[in-house]
Design a protein around this nucleic acid. Structure first.
Length: 484
DNA sequence: TTCCGACAGTGGGGTCGCAAT
DNA sequence: ATTGCGACCC
DNA sequence: CACTATCGGAA
């Protein structure tokens, strides 16, 4: 497409191109300058090093370390890439990695050092991310995206009936059958080693399904529509199954089982969607309506039940009104599910956060006493103000964020005043600090510590902490002792 | 003109592997 | 044996 | 995962 400029830029020129993107506040202008950057070989390389999701370094560098001063010489970017690829392969780890990185910074000019620092943080720090890069040129970095849901709002349901399914609190997983083999992948496209034992059974199910003959009755049939365009490799249909991987023992165990390398994960695959590889791999939406895609899954599971219960299809009900949706949601909650998924029956498969899938989840609030604060991450927007609050929940410290900028500024003032009373330094950093003040033991003159805030959350965790805790408001009527 | 969708950036609990201590 | 960090799940 | 800030097109 666009021919890369062969002209060799200096490191400083490359940094200048990146900073020019950062200086623009307009999204469209950012994308213009990002396109300029992507049109240079070095710029393209930087974008890849910063945004290829499959390259990680195993080491981070929050603050920019000191660099040398000498003039730039040789191909610094190639040097950086060589170093990073050693990190990516974990040929260099731990102290050895830290030493090599430190000496690289020490030998680099400030411009070269900045390039390395941006790469280590995997962020050009210019207000662009994967979506912008994709818009500029989809071929720069690999993209793996599955369909995700927005929060349920009545106005998003344009027509009834709709499908309602239980929301399963596990891990989103896709199975991809391709080139005669297969594999399980996470929501972001990482291979899941602990599911290798399920690959062959799943391929077997797909082969069995594809080999079954079915009666058409002369009617249009979504399954036959799929079969007619399917490609095969060694008898295996090239298919993508999309669903939720679940342990019977809850979310924490699902997480553990999928990460542990020591054993095969004892989980079941609750499938809710099914695409051909070509449909999944293509850019843009898959127009096949959800109702039809679901019939594909029912067909697959229906004719492979005898192969075991590791592969299942999620249950589904049909709602004809918002009231019915609420009733089904309440029923799912009563049965222990995380919530409900509302899916538009004629909606396409969209490889992004879609309005065709809507989620309902339980949310609760609690009033909890502030016992400390923490600042924002070093080098970030909130480094010198409030990053969040630390509240006490029956002896468990819960860190609470979700504050708006004005509230952060207000709280930072209160914190600075409180801290003066005990002659302490307000700069406690991201680690944060508490003064062990619980119940009535705080100084009555304090304006923040000991006061009560309302915290919203999804659920209480097994350790007595809160999942997804976020600040709602101060409860100034409730300073001091937490009620009940 | 106002509203709202998409995007980037900030932050949470919890789990594992790995390396340092 | 414990601790802390990085990477990813939600 | 949830949330806030921002820009720019939809309404």
């Amino acid at each position: 497409m666009t021919a890369l400029q062969p002209i060799r830029m200096t490191d400083a020129q490359l940094v200048a191109m990146i900073d020019r993107i950062a200086l623009e506040s307009s999204r469209t202008e950012k994308e213009r300058y990002l396109a300029d950057l992507a049109a240079t070989s070095q710029g393209r390389e930087m974008i890849q090093l910063c945004y290829n999701p499959f390259w990680t370094w195993g080491i981070t560098q929050k603050e920019m370390p000191p660099t040398g001063q000498g003039p730039s010489e040789g191909d610094t970017l190639a040097e950086i890439k060589t170093l990073l690829m050693k990190l990516a392969a974990r040929e260099l780890t731990g102290n050895a990695a830290a030493e090599v990185v430190a000496s690289a910074f020490a030998s680099f000019t400030p411009a070269a050092g900045r390039l390395l620092w941006l790469c280590l943080n995997k962020d050009l720090k210019a207000g662009v991310n994967t979506a912008s890069i994709l818009a500029v040129d989809p071929s720069i970095v690999p993209i793996f995206a599955v369909m995700r849901a927005n929060s349920y709002e009545e106005k998003h349901v344009k027509a009834f009936p709709v499908a309602v399914e239980p929301k399963l609190d596990g891990h989103r997983v896709t199975f991809i059958a391709k080139d005669g083999g297969g594999g399980f992948f996470t929501r972001t496209g990482k291979a899941i080693d602990s599911l290798e034992h399920m690959i062959e059974p799943t391929l077997k199910a797909l082969r069995h399904w594809a080999g079954m003959t079915r009666i058409t009755n002369g009617q249009p049939n979504p399954v036959h529509d799929l079969l007619s365009v399917l490609r095969y490799f060694g008898g295996v249909p090239e298919i993508v199954l999309d669903g939720e991987m679940m342990s019977d023992q809850g979310f924490a165990e699902t997480s553990g089982a999928l990460r542990r390398k020591s054993e095969d994960a004892d989980v079941r695959f609750h499938i809710f969607d099914m695409l051909s590889w070509d449909e999944f791999d293509a850019m843009g939406d898959v127009a096949v309506p959800y109702a039809h895609r679901r019939q594909r899954v029912l067909d697959l599971i229906g004719c492979t039940k005898h192969l075991g219960d590791r592969l299942t299809v999620t249950e589904m009900r049909v709602a004809r009104s918002h009231d019915e949706i609420q009733l089904i949601y309440q029923d799912y909650r009563a049965r222990g599910f995380e919530g409900a998924m509302v899916k538009l029956l004629d909606g396409p498969y969209q490889k992004k956060k879609s309005r065709s899938w809507l989620k309902l989840k339980n949310e609760d609030t609690e009033d909890l006493q502030v016992i400390g604060v923490f600042q924002g991450q070093a080098g970030g927007k909130y480094e010198h103000t409030i990053g969040g609050l630390i509240v006490d929940r029956n002896g468990v410290e819960v860190r609470v964020s979700g504050l708006d900028d004005a509230t952060r500024a207000e709280i930072w003032k209160l914190w600075c005043e409180d801290v003066q009373l005990v002659a302490a330094n307000p700069n406690v950093g991201y680690k944060g600090e508490t003064f062990g003040i619980v119940g009535e033991t705080f100084d009555r003159r304090m304006k923040l510590l000991g006061h009560v805030v309302e915290v919203e959350y999804h659920e209480v965790t097994p350790d007595g902490s809160l999942r997804h805790p976020r600040f709602i408001r101060f409860r100034d009527d409730k300073t001091g002792e937490v009620e009940k």
